[in-house]
C-alpha cells in the first residue's frame, strides 16, 4: 500500500530505541543533544507508524510518503550515532 514496509520500519525504529535506552542507562555515558533529539524524533515516528497501521492518519498520500522517507533518513542517520 505504501512505498515502505511499515512493519520493518517499526522494527528498525524500536532497534534505535533500544540503542538509546542502552546509552541512557549506563552511568558513565554522556547523553548528547543528538541522542535526545533522536529519541524525541523516534518517539513521534513510532506513534505515526502505529497510527498509519491502524488507519488513523488523515493525510494526503503524497505527504504520508514524504513522512515515511523522512523516517528512512532517520534510520540511516541513527547508524552513524550508534
Amino acid at each position: 500500500m505504501y512505498n515502505h514496509d511499515l512493519d520493518e520500519m517499526h522494527r528498525s525504529l524500536f532497534a534505535i530505541v533500544n540503542s538509546i535506552k542502552e546509552s541512557i542507562s549506563k552511568p558513565s555515558n554522556h547523553v548528547s543533544e543528538e541522542v535526545t533529539n533522536l529519541a524525541t524524533t523516534v518517539s513521534y515516528q513510532i506513534q505515526f507508524v502505529e497510527d498509519l497501521k491502524s488507519g488513523s492518519v488523515d493525510m494526503d498520500r503524497i505527504v504520508i510518503d514524504e513522512k515515511l522517507d523522512i523516517i528512512e533518513k532517520t534510520i540511516e542517520l541513527s547508524k552513524e550515532l550508534f
Partner: peptide, 12 residues
Amino acid sequence: SSTYQFKKSPEV
C-alpha cells in the same frame, strides 16, 4: 492539509 496531530509514543 490534515487534522492529524503528531504525538509521542507513550510506550517509548
